[in-house]
């Protein structure tokens, strides 16, 4: 099963001279799942994807797509893959239609119905020259060309960047539909909420190393969402001490302004807040740093335990 899995990466290292790329990555992407590849900018997501696409040769280790070696069999690999690069740069002098026709000419079977459906769904501008298109419209062209030939595997590097929120939502909905049709999707992103919305499993990469591979439910347990609360008068921080999924991160302005880290047990927290003289509340989306913080703290604890 694993041997011909959509993506198998084993002990993959790729460096750029003395610069770090990725180090000793191992993970597998299973058929019919959306695998989120999550990490801050410069973490090594794009390097990994370029190895998968056969643009870069691994320094050591291996990467396989459907059992095919990504470097020596990259032509065959690309027959099974729809790809959107992280930095979409198209041929400026082509029109959108020329671009899609050109990219489609290399694929043996593109259904006109699918092409029509994609163009309608993503509202792609076909007649303008690409140099006159907005960033979002260029991104949509890149997405459509990756989906045109209905590939079994999509490799998408930050695919929603440049899209407006409505189109982002539409695209993520489309990805879930594709997953339900049995497609496998490798989605790189630095936005935790986006990955949480669509992914089944998540690989977290930082400074070139894979920190963890988790299900989305496991991820949700490990991250915290920041909540900023303003009270009419001073509040004792011990009010939150008995709430297990809540930590006080900062207290300011004479104990009237709190920043809380909320990992769990939101209903109890809201009940507690309603008993206090609350005047304002901001509940921010979860961020990636809070996930890393969880792992640092765990690592620190392990080191301390080992030292003692």
């Amino acid at each position: 099963m694993t041997a011909n899995a959509p993506i198998v990466v084993e002990r993959l290292t790729r460096s750029y001279g003395t610069q770090r790329g990725v180090v000793d990555l191992t993970f597998t992407v299973q058929p019919g799942e959306i695998f989120g590849f999550l990490g801050p900018n410069g973490a090594g997501k794009t390097t990994t994807i370029r190895v998968l696409m056969g643009f870069l040769r691994p320094s050591s280790g291996s990467a396989h797509v459907f059992g095919l070696d990504c470097w020596s069999q990259s032509t065959e690999v690309k027959a099974h893959v729809g790809y959107v690069p992280g930095d979409v740069r198209l041929w400026d002098n082509m029109t959108g239609k020329q671009f899609l026709d050109f990219m489609g000419a290399f694929r043996p079977s593109i259904s006109p119905e699918r092409r029509r459906m994609l163009l309608e769904r993503f509202q792609v501008e076909l007649d303008k020259r690409i140099k006159h298109l907005s960033r979002g419209n260029r991104q949509k062209l890149a997405l459509v060309q990756a989906l045109l030939h209905d590939p079994p595997l999509l490799i998408l590097d930050e695919p929603t960047s440049g899209l407006d929120p409505l189109m982002q939502h539409e695209f993520l909905t489309f990805l879930r539909e594709e997953r339900d049709r049995g497609k496998t999707i490798f989605l790189s992103s630095h936005q935790l909420p986006e990955v949480e919305r669509v992914a089944d499993r998540v690989g977290i990469i930082r400074e070139g190393q894979l920190v963890a591979v988790l299900t989305v439910d496991e991820l949700k347990q490990r991250r915290t969402r920041p909540m900023d609360v303003v009270f009419a008068g001073p509040v004792d921080p011990s009010e939150f001490a008995d709430l297990p999924g809540v930590r006080v991160l900062a207290v300011e302005n004479g104990s009237t302004r709190f920043r809380l880290g909320v990992q769990d047990d939101l209903p109890r927290l809201l009940r507690r807040l309603s008993d206090l003289p609350i005047v304002d509340l901001t509940y921010a989306p979860p961020d990636l740093e809070s996930v890393f913080l969880t792992y640092y703290q765990a690592e620190q604890r392990e080191r301390q335990e080992a030292a003692s």
Binding site: M53, K78, Y83, P85, R89, M103
Partner: peptide
């Protein structure tokens, strides 16, 4: 240089 190589080389052709 222009970054178009990523599309150029993503097609299934050697």
């Amino acid at each position: 240089e222009r970054g178009t190589a990523e599309f150029w080389l993503s097609v299934p052709l050697s």
